[in-house]
């Protein structure tokens, strides 16, 4: 008897083939992958920082300290979650939950390889941008509700900074979009099968990476949590798992930003010899390494310099770049 002729088996296959099943499996993969990836990235960050700073980094837990971040996570889970007095308790509670939402949703439209994509969307790129704006809301909520002046200054800086840097970010993305005529991630990658966009759009690529670094609040644009001025910025008052959720979101946003840059400019999964997924991961982690490298090399910008850099340098260059792209496309 043919097994597929049984009615309930048919239903199961039909269900597995559905979008819902793919979405559930994909979200499960994200839910497992994101925290593990963050644990790995924190370790990488500490090792990179260590070697740049002439020291070995964490070495105690596990061989070469590879289990250090897992132990840290266990420690953070065991910590008491202190809510200081005079805080806005609802917002204080909601902010760390809200900050991880865009960090998880942002993975949905990214195409890691021709077959590895949770959901192809017509507005894939726009979805990531619009969700990444939510994380600013949660930073503002955290800073406002903490009843701490350092947090508030950090939150105010975060809003100004993210508003300023989203413009060059979108403008530089736009110059790729008008070349490919699509917001679909996989189609943008497929358009780069012969030549990567970074060769056509080097200026846009650089602006994109600078602006995403600022959007992720990474050094040298980490004014939001500038530890030498604002102690810890907007999450000064957060402890335990709530604090680590902010941490998780920061690192996950970094990976999403690097994935975006890979899709938009570095040819996504294309590359010789290896399968697509491996190339994608190599490119993403290379970009993350560059961001870490910059972080441990440069001091922090001052707030006015940061704003000037966005409004007086990045935005005009991005606009001119977009204009030139449009004219060249029209002429061709």
């Amino acid at each position: 008897m043919n097994i597929t002729q049984l009615p309930y088996i048919k239903d199961i296959f039909a269900f597995m083939g559905s979008d819902l099943m793919a979405a559930v499996i994909g979200l499960l993969i994200i839910a497992v992958f994101v925290p593990l990836n963050v644990a790995f990235l924190v370790l990488v960050e500490r090792k990179v920082a260590g070697h740049i700073q002439l020291r070995p980094g964490p070495m105690e837990v596990g061989p070469h300290g590879i289990l250090q971040t897992l132990i840290d996570a266990v420690k953070l889970l065991g910590k008491e979650m202190v809510t200081p007095g005079m805080t806005d308790k609802v917002l204080f509670f909601l902010a760390p939950i809200l900050v991880v939402v865009p960090a998880f949703v942002g993975w949905v439209p990214i195409s890691f390889s021709p077959i590895m994509q949770i959901r192809e969307m017509n507005v894939g790129v726009l979805l990531i941008f619009s969700f990444s704006s939510i994380s600013i809301l949660s930073i503002l909520m955290a800073g406002w509700s903490s009843n701490n002046k350092y947090s508030l200054i950090g939150a105010v800086r975060a809003v100004a900074q993210n508003v300023a840097y989203e413009i060059p970010l979108l403008l530089s993305t736009m110059s790729v979009i008008i070349m490919t005529n699509t917001f679909r991630m996989s189609e943008i990658v497929n358009a780069q099968s012969s030549v990567w966009h970074i060769l056509y759009q080097p200026v846009a690529a650089i602006i994109f990476i600078i602006a995403t670094t600022a959007e992720c609040n990474r050094a040298p644009f980490d004014l939001v949590e500038a530890e030498s001025e604002l102690v810890s910025g907007f999450h000064t008052e957060y402890t335990g798992m709530r604090f680590s959720l902010f941490f998780l979101a920061e690192y996950t946003n970094m990976v999403i930003a690097a994935s975006m840059a890979t899709v938009l400019f570095l040819g996504g999964w294309f590359g010789p010899f290896f399968p697509g997924l491996i190339w994608f991961v190599i490119k993403v982690y290379f970009l993350i390494f560059v961001v870490m490298w910059v972080r441990w090399t440069y001091p922090r910008l001052r707030f006015d310099q940061l704003m000037n850099f966005a409004w007086k340098v990045l935005i005009p260059i991005a606009l001119v770049n977009l204009l030139i792209t449009a004219i060249v496309l029209k002429v061709i």
């Binding site: 920082a49 740049i52 700073q53 030498s228 001091p299």
Partner: peptide, 16 residues
């Protein structure tokens, strides 16, 4: 001073 500006690496180089 460099660390106050946010550059942590020089501090550890000097420390070395």
């Amino acid at each position: 001073y460099a660390m106050g500006l946010g550059a942590i690496t020089p501090f550890l180089w000097g420390w070395d």
